[in-house]
């Protein structure tokens, strides 16, 4: 049982690392297109069509792809001072429960994000200038959210493990 958990955790971590890489690519991408657009507009009178909407989409993808790794590294902002006063065991239990709560909320979020994607697909929503379909992006984000939620579950397991081991 614990072997299987370990294996799936490693698998999820691999995806998290790939997502980090994609997130970085999107960052470089939006930096580049804005620069190309500004140069093109001012020097050649030829702006880069769709820069505005590609920046919006690029930033959104950047954010959701980076959420899981950010969470894995405990980078999401929390207020610690009260919980820090509890014993280590209580702290681990609280942290584990909080991770479960995070996983639940993010799973719910991904589910309704998926529904949003389906609606967007049915309505054939696109971007303005390039008429790119929006729903594939929402589905990709749904996936990224699921990975985020899984990361939280594995963290919960780690915390509960610590709580049990440290008697």
């Amino acid at each position: 049982m614990s072997k299987m958990i370990e294996k799936s955790e490693r698998f999820v971590q691999k995806i998290v690392r790939i997502q980090q890489f994609i997130s970085n690519i999107f960052l470089v991408f939006i930096m580049s297109i804005i620069t190309i657009d500004v140069l093109g507009r001012n020097i050649f009178n030829q702006p880069l069509k769709g820069t505005f909407e590609m920046t919006e989409l690029g930033a959104a993808l950047l954010v959701f792809f980076a959420l899981a790794v950010t969470h894995k590294q405990d980078d999401h902002i929390t207020i610690d001072f009260l919980v820090d006063r509890f014993s280590e065991k209580v702290r681990n239990v609280i942290n584990g429960l909080v991770e479960i709560l995070i996983a639940c909320i993010v799973f719910f979020m991904s589910f309704y994000m998926y529904e949003n994607g389906v609606r967007t697909m049915e309505r054939k929503a696109t971007t303005t200038d390039l008429a790119i379909s929006i729903h594939p992006f929402i589905f990709v984000i749904t996936f990224a959210l699921i990975i985020f939620a899984l990361t939280a579950i594995f963290k919960a397991l780690t915390y509960f493990g610590l709580a049990v081991n440290k008697k």
Binding site: R41, P47, G50, F52, E53, T128
Partner: peptide
């Protein structure tokens, strides 16, 4: 000719370009 004009829609951008202007999208 050559003027940068903020455009409200893709159709407007299309004919602005045909007229020799440079359409710009921004909020």
């Amino acid at each position: 000719e050559g003027m940068k004009i903020r455009s409200p829609s893709p159709e407007t951008s299309e004919w602005l370009e045909a007229l020799g202007a440079t359409p710009v999208s921004m909020p």
